[in-house]
Amino acid sequence: EPLWIRPDAPSRCTWQLGRPASESPHHHTAPAKSPKILPDILKKIGDTPMVRINKIGKKFGLKCELLAKCEFFNAGGSVKDRISLRMIEDAERDGTLKPGDTIIEPTSGNTGIGLALAAAVRGYRCIIVMPEKMSSEKVDVLRALGAEIVRTPTNARFDSPESHVGVAWRLKNEIPNSHILDQYRNASNPLAHYDTTADEILQQCDGKLDMLVASVGTGGTITGIARKLKEKCPGCRIIGVDPEGSILAEPEELNQTEQTTYEVEGIGYDFIPTVLDRTVVDKWFKSNDEEAFTFARMLIAQEGLLCGGSAGSTVAVAVKAAQELQEGQRCVVILPDSVRNYMTKFLSDRWMLQKGFLKEEDLTEKKPWWWHLRVQELGLSAPLTVLPTITCGHTIEILREKGFDQAPVVDEAGVILGMVTLGNMLSSLLAGKVQPSDQVGKVIYKQFKQIRLTDTLGRLSHILEMDHFALVVHEQIQYHSTGKSSQRQMVFGVVTAIDLLNFVAAQERDQK
């Protein structure tokens, strides 16, 4: 057995438009009618409502009807409940999964919650491996369901041993009777949507819809739904939504950006999952974080739909894509998950301010006199920076000697690579993860907040409520011999709460 199987392995699926269902090699399930009293909570997966979006479509000038398939009504709160249950049931049916076995899954959280929910009911041990950027709410729900959680670096490539995929496979090879159901490759993922989600949409719309818009992560949702719609409703256009920084969209030119990270969760990847059939997507749109969270908040405030950030991405694209539809036509959007997962993220004004998705003037509360002053007023001194090749031991000596707790790590040209902190280095040394002679590049981390000289002290204040420091950066445009230009970030300084307090105190003292 291989040590790991690539999540982007070539698909062996034989589905073709027009091929009889009787030739399918898979076990198919028909939607079942729910009894009045459910035998367990797993029976509350599927049969989610279709809700008309009344205000947002009109606000953006849509002539067509805009409908939302509300997947956050599933038992675990997301569309991923469907595939989690289906993968477990299919693994039980073919004898792969037996009582007492362990389920391991690399996930952005929602599939993990679905699997942990099913594992709690069915009696399996469950280990979820997820990147650090995923919300604390997801972690809390997983723990409450009895799952064990392993976190991995957000910026690790999918084929790196440190990625959530790599760590999951390492655990599988170490733990007896453990299984990775593997949402990236498992046919049960798109089949769950082909058999149930798509049929529900067709039934709820009486077979009449002209466009379907869905955000894409593993691709199982859009693949399964689109294949069924292509068979039953061939005139329906399928629109895929991919965040900026991901590479799922086609044509490839759409993916060209210097951005590699994004805040919206559960969609987009740096590889093409095996289950994603991009041939059934008629057109791709890219979405960005700001519009995703703005539209998610709009869905909550104006439509009462308590959905997550990827739902915002989907609707932001839908109001663009559906401009081509006329009166009497219908566009369906998939709202994948609930706001429950993001209470401390985009639902929080403070978080939105820190990330730059909300401006101070958007909030009406009274601010102190210094709130709208610029960061450049602080008069920061030149920063202490270190090269990635310097040793951890030497870096600790320098920081202690100069009285700093942290320093930016830059390359020879001064471009920011990340940050090192005294606390992080000492804990890594004590844990045996690094040696004093190791290069400081081994303990770089990139989960820090950046701020510009033109940003306000109010925004800085919000950042420092949650973080010990902020890195002050400025952009530099560099022209190359080819005539092309590129933008790079340079370090201007490091600012802490002490710097802000000293500035405010000094100004008030001078005024007296």
Score class of each variant (00 low, 15 high):
Ile238Glu: 03
Ser246Phe: 01
Ile247Pro: 07
Ile247Gln: 07
Ile247Ser: 08
Ile247Trp: 06
Leu248Lys: 03
Leu248Asp: 00
Glu250Gln: 11
Glu253Lys: 10
Gln256Ala: 09
Thr257Cys: 08
Tyr262Phe: 08
Glu263Val: 06
Val264Pro: 00
Glu265Leu: 00
Gly266Gln: 01
Ile267Arg: 00
Ile267Tyr: 07
Gly268Lys: 00
Gly268Glu: 00
Tyr269Trp: 02
Phe271Gly: 00
Phe271Tyr: 04
Phe271Asp: 00
Ile272Arg: 05
Ile272Trp: 04
Arg278Asn: 05
Val280Trp: 10
Asp282Gly: 12
Lys283Tyr: 10
Lys283Asp: 08
Trp284His: 01
Lys286Glu: 07
Ser287Trp: 02
Asp289His: 01
Ala292Gln: 03
Phe293His: 02
Phe293Tyr: 02
Phe293Cys: 03
Phe295Gln: 12
Phe295Asn: 06
Phe295Cys: 11
Arg297Tyr: 00
Arg297His: 01
Ala301Thr: 04
Ala301Arg: 11
Glu303Lys: 04
Glu303Ala: 04
Leu305Gly: 01
Leu306Val: 02
Cys307Ala: 08
Ala316His: 14
Ala318Tyr: 03
Lys320Pro: 08
Gln323Arg: 15
Gln323Gly: 10
Glu324Gln: 14
Glu324Cys: 04
Leu325Ile: 07
Leu325Asp: 02
Gln326Tyr: 12
Glu327Cys: 15
Gln329Lys: 11
Cys331Asn: 01
Val332Cys: 14
Val333Trp: 01
Ile334Ala: 05
Leu335Gln: 00
Pro336Asp: 04
Pro336Lys: 00
Asp337His: 00
Val339Leu: 11
Val339His: 05
Thr344Ser: 04
Thr344Tyr: 03
Phe346Gln: 04
Leu347Met: 07
Ser348Ile: 05
Asp349Leu: 09
Asp349Tyr: 05
Asp349Ala: 03
Leu353Trp: 07
Gln354Tyr: 06
Lys355Cys: 04
Leu358Val: 09
Lys359Asn: 15
Glu360Gly: 15
Leu363Gly: 12
Glu365Ala: 13
Lys367Phe: 15
Trp369Cys: 08
Trp371Val: 09
His372Asn: 13
His372Thr: 13
His372Lys: 05
Arg374His: 13
Glu377Lys: 12
Gly379Leu: 07
Leu380His: 10
Ser381Cys: 13
Ser381Thr: 14
Leu384Tyr: 07
Leu384Ala: 09
Thr385Gln: 07
Val386Asp: 02
Thr389His: 13
Thr389Ala: 03
Ile390Met: 12
Thr391Lys: 05
Thr391Phe: 15
Gly393Phe: 15
His394Cys: 04
His394Thr: 10
His394Trp: 05
Ile398Pro: 07
Ile398Tyr: 14
Arg400Asn: 11
Lys402Leu: 12
Phe404Trp: 15
Asp405His: 10
Asp405Ile: 09
Gln406Cys: 10
Gln406Lys: 07
Ala407Leu: 14
Pro408Lys: 03
Pro408Gly: 10
Val409Cys: 12
Val409Ile: 14
Val410Met: 15
Asp411Glu: 08
Glu412Asp: 14
Ala413Gln: 15
Val415Met: 09
Ile416Trp: 01
Leu417His: 15
Gly418Ala: 11
Met419Trp: 13
Thr421Trp: 05
Thr421Glu: 08
Asn424Cys: 10
Met425Cys: 11
Leu430Gly: 05
Ala431Gly: 13
Gly432Arg: 12
Gln435Ser: 12
Pro436His: 15
Gly441Ile: 12
Tyr445Thr: 10
Tyr445Lys: 08
Gln447Asp: 15
Phe448Ala: 03
Phe448Gly: 12
Gln450Asp: 14
Ile451Asp: 08
Arg452Ala: 12
Asp455Ala: 15
Asp455Glu: 12
Asp455Cys: 14
Asp455Ser: 14
Asp455Gly: 06
Gly458Met: 08
Arg459Thr: 12
Arg459Asn: 10
Arg459Trp: 11
Leu460Ile: 08
Ser461Ala: 05
Ser461Asp: 06
His462Met: 13
His462Glu: 14
Met466Leu: 14
Asp467Leu: 07
His468Met: 13
His468Trp: 04
Phe469Glu: 15
Phe469His: 09
Val472Tyr: 03
His474Met: 09
Gln476Glu: 13
Ile477Glu: 09
Ile477Ser: 09
Ile477Pro: 03
Ile477Ala: 15
Gln478Ala: 12
Ser481Ala: 15
Ser481Cys: 15
Thr482Pro: 14
Gly483Lys: 13
Gly483Met: 13
Lys484Thr: 04
Ser485Met: 12
Arg488Asp: 05
Gln489Ile: 11
Met490Asn: 12
Val491Glu: 09
Val491Cys: 14
Val494Pro: 07
Val494Tyr: 03
Ala497Ile: 12
Asp499Trp: 02
Asp499Met: 00
Asp499Asn: 03
Asp499Glu: 07
Leu500Asn: 00
Ala505Ser: 14
Ala505Pro: 05
Gln507Asn: 15
Arg509His: 14
Asp510Phe: 15
